[in-house]
Design a protein around this nucleic acid. Sequence first.
DNA 1: AAGCTAGACAACCGCGTTCCG
DNA 2: TCGGAACGCGGTTGTCTAGCT
Length: 379
Amino acid sequence: MVRPPCCDKLNVKKGLWSEEEDAKMLAYVSKHGTGNWTAVPKKAGLRRCGKSCRLRWTNYLRPDLKRESFTPQEEELIIRLHAAIGSRWSIIAQQLPGRTDNDVKNYWNTKLRKKLSEMGIDPVTHKPFSQILADYGNIGGLPKSRARIGSLNRDMKNAFLTRPEPFPPPATAAEGFSNINNRLMTTIASPGMEPIQDNFFPNNSINHHPDSDSLELLSQLQAIKVVTEATNYTGHQTISPQFPNKYSLSLSSPSSSSTSSTCSTAAQEKSGLAFSWRDFLLEDAFLPTDHTQGQEDRILEFSSDEIVPQSHSSNGTSAENIDNNNSDNNGVQGISGGGVPSHGFHASSSTNSSFVAAMIDQENEMFSEFANLLEDPCY
DNA sequence: AAGCTAGACAACCGCGTTCCG
DNA sequence: TCGGAACGCGGTTGTCTAGCT
């Protein structure tokens, strides 16, 4: 690619901006406004590329930028929009006043992606890792396990290579997820649920079809509308009562949006749409299908409002208590002790080993069945 | 105190799109 | 219609800093 003329000069400065440079930029913009960035360095007396000037202005010097850290509401909106339209940072940033696409992108890369991974959700597809691996396992001609893991995206790779248990269930509410994050668990990665885009935004970045660009913009706008509306209510998306495990998100015309995009009812809110972690792994090819009572003990149950270990339901740690605790924190980061939520997994170690053993068994089965394919010299 | 590491964020790079003569 | 310049975007890299050993 041909470099812009302004960037060809050998004496163009790179790296961090000094206060003096910032002052020059501010002085220039306050006098002349923005635009024609290639001319800015010369007019402003800066040894910078015009592109660099534009970035410095839009990402740092603009007076309307927020400096404070992201709020849980902003966090939620980012995740919802990312689930709906993918990494279209500029579009997402437009829904967050005072935030730049760079801000949002950095926040996603440093915080949210990791957070979702720790919750057992693939940040790329917003599907549970277990579901992805199950899907992945259905693809024929699989290479050896290590290479197979190597071909996963980096988030799943991290989940595999840095954790004793490959598919950690979400942490419990007591371990520190806010109500907002709990709701995210149910709206983004609820059991058996197809991701939002699979059902409603077929032209998203994941399922993109090259001939569908005209529909893509509409889908994105609809996605933004729905996501922002849902967030403006209570953070809940419409939940179809007929399909408790298939959360539907209404896409509607403006005339019907007030009714179709409503939040859940108060009763639903109170009772929560409880489902178990077993449901979450329902499609996991590696889990034994017949659950014994012993296995039942390790099932974690969580609702749309809080995540409650089922086996702990009688120990006085009621859902309401947890909810109250979160309320004490104004619904913001109900993390006792602060910090990043732990991976807190209440299952016993034997449970973990049985889970892993099931995986290994499955893998060995495939190896024996497709032994010839495993000799692929590419691996 | 020095070295190391991870996290946060600023900045750069390359590419696609839009604008304009 | 075409080609070059400008702009915008997303991915990646670089730098700084705080915390830990």
